[in-house]
Design a protein around this nucleic acid. Structure first.
Length: 434
DNA sequence: TATCCACAGGAAATCAGGGTGT
DNA sequence: ACACCCTGATTTCCTGTGGATA
């Protein structure tokens, strides 16, 4: 490919040569992935014991109780369950339980959950991704469980179960799953729900609580010293010897402890710091790398999120950007966003206009993602609306938007809305009210 | 004190696009 | 070809509402 500017050309050969010659930082960076299951799980003894006790009877062919695991993100819920399931599988028993993992955020509909279970068990016949009625699949699944799983136990691990319950049909499928055993002759099933919302039980159907929610295991957040232990263990595997300066792990642990003790975050920080050191061809990972890693992680997440949004949502964000760019003092309300959105949408061919209702949902999604914040406020005679603020740096937003071709060309468009005197007047009144 | 603005946000309906078995 | 299934995105319809203003 030809270089357009010709004043700088990336020398890939040289890069690889230097890379291989440069200092080695990592030994096995997989150990810093949150999916990695270590030999020991520090500070989860009581949870391991609890789960082991609950599930042990599967080895004898009895039905283990269904239960729930609570805890914030990065408190080791999934890891602990995988850990116990591994150990359970290593026992020499004639019964080998099945473990089926379902992330309800990915496998997000009743149909797909049933299909996923079926397809995981069945090697040969697969259920198509759509098309069949649910009850047919349910019956097929029952048949399969009885024949293929036979006289064994099938654990259904529903990760992020709270998301499932929040959706329509979620309670029904959960109810169906809890009732599987009543319709099975040979095989037994047991449900393990994982949730990071402690209050999620309240939204659960009472019929389900009786079979699923009576027993639960709580995963408390890690404190800084516990995080240090976890990181130390992983670092031994992940890094070359001596590359970590002694202050690195305590710093990562402290930073993650501030964020409700999220081990995932701590591991990410450590990995990113290592990567930064590697990229800079440094021999050691230092506190400086960790500090940079923190900013990078935050930005990476935001950039990825914005780039991954639907185009219409990107337009919403663009509207906010344009108002802010041309009138930084403007008090932004949802109505303004919609007006500017309509305006710039008209500039783009082939993009249809969404309704206010839909845009309102997009604004909520952006709020949830932490990119903007919105506060419902009543402006008296000026109605009830949302005051919207950008929560990320506008430079970062600009950088993201510039990378979207269709949007790039309208980033200098000054919205008509913010130029009108009427709006300026209204805004002055708003400023006093806010 | 009643009014009334400009929305918020829930629920249900609709549509298009992916399928099925017969 | 036909009737029907499931999903996700969106529209349509709707009720609710805090507080400045007349």
């Amino acid at each position: 490919m030809k270089n357009q500017n010709n004043n700088y050309q990336f020398n890939i050969e040289k890069f690889y040569k230097n890379y291989l010659k440069g200092p080695r930082i990592f030994n096995n960076r997989d150990a810093l992935e949150s999916s990695y299951i270590p030999e020991d799980l520090p500070h989860r003894d009581s949870q391991i014991k609890n789960i082991a006790e609950k599930t042990a009877c599967a080895l004898l062919g009895d039905t283990p109780p269904s239960f729930l695991c609570y805890g914030m993100t990065g408190t080791g819920k999934t890891a602990t369950i995988r850990y116990v399931s591994q150990k359970l599988a290593q026992q020499s028993s004639r019964i080998k339980p099945w473990w089926i993992y379902i992330n309800c955020n990915v496998v997000s509909t009743p149909y797909r959950i049933l299909a996923h279970i079926y397809n995981t068990i069945s090697r040969s016949e697969k259920i198509p991704p759509t098309g069949l009625p649910k009850d047919i699949i349910f019956k097929k699944l029952l048949g399969l469980l009885d024949s293929k799983v036979g006289n064994s136990i099938c654990f259904l691990v529903l990760d992020e179960i709270d998301i499932l319950v929040g959706k329509k049909g979620g309670n029904e499928i959960l109810y169906d799953l809890t009732r599987l055993n009543e319709n099975l002759d040979n095989c037994k099933t047991s449900i393990i729900g994982i949730s990071n919302k402690l209050k999620f039980r309240e939204t659960l159907d009472p019929r389900i609580i009786s079979s699923l929610g009576e027993e639960h295991i709580v995963f408390p957040s890690y404190d800084a010293s516990e995080l240090r232990d976890i990181l130390t263990e992983r670092a031994k595997i992940a890094f070359q010897e001596g590359v970590l300066k002694e202050e690195v792990i305590p710093l990562c642990a402290a930073l993650a402890a501030k964020e409700h003790g999220d081990a995932r975050k701590a591991l990410q920080l450590l990995r990113k710091a290592g990567e930064l050191a590697e990229r800079a061809q440094n021999k050691q990972v230092t506190a400086k790398h960790v500090e940079n890693a923190q900013g990078d992680l935050e930005n990476d997440y935001i950039i990825e999120y914005i780039k991954g949004m639907p185009f219409q949502a990107q337009l919403v964000l663009t509207s906010l950007y344009l108002i802010l760019k041309f009138s930084p003092e403007h008090i932004i309300i949802s109505g303004d966003i919609y007006d500017v959105y309509s305006e710039i949408r008209g500039l783009l061919p082939g993009i249809r206009q969404l309704t206010k209702r839909r845009i309102s949902d997009y604004i909520n999604e952006l709020t949830l993602a932490g990119i903007i914040s919105a506060e419902v406020k009543s402006m008296g005679h000026y109605g009830r609306t949302k005051i919207i603020k950008l929560d990320i740096e506008i430079e970062l937003l600009e950088k993201c938007l510039l990378e979207i071709d269709k949007i790039k060309i309208i980033l200098n468009h000054k919205p008509v809305l913010i130029q009108s005197d009427k709006i300026k007047l209204k805004n002055n009144i708003f400023k006093k009210l806010v």
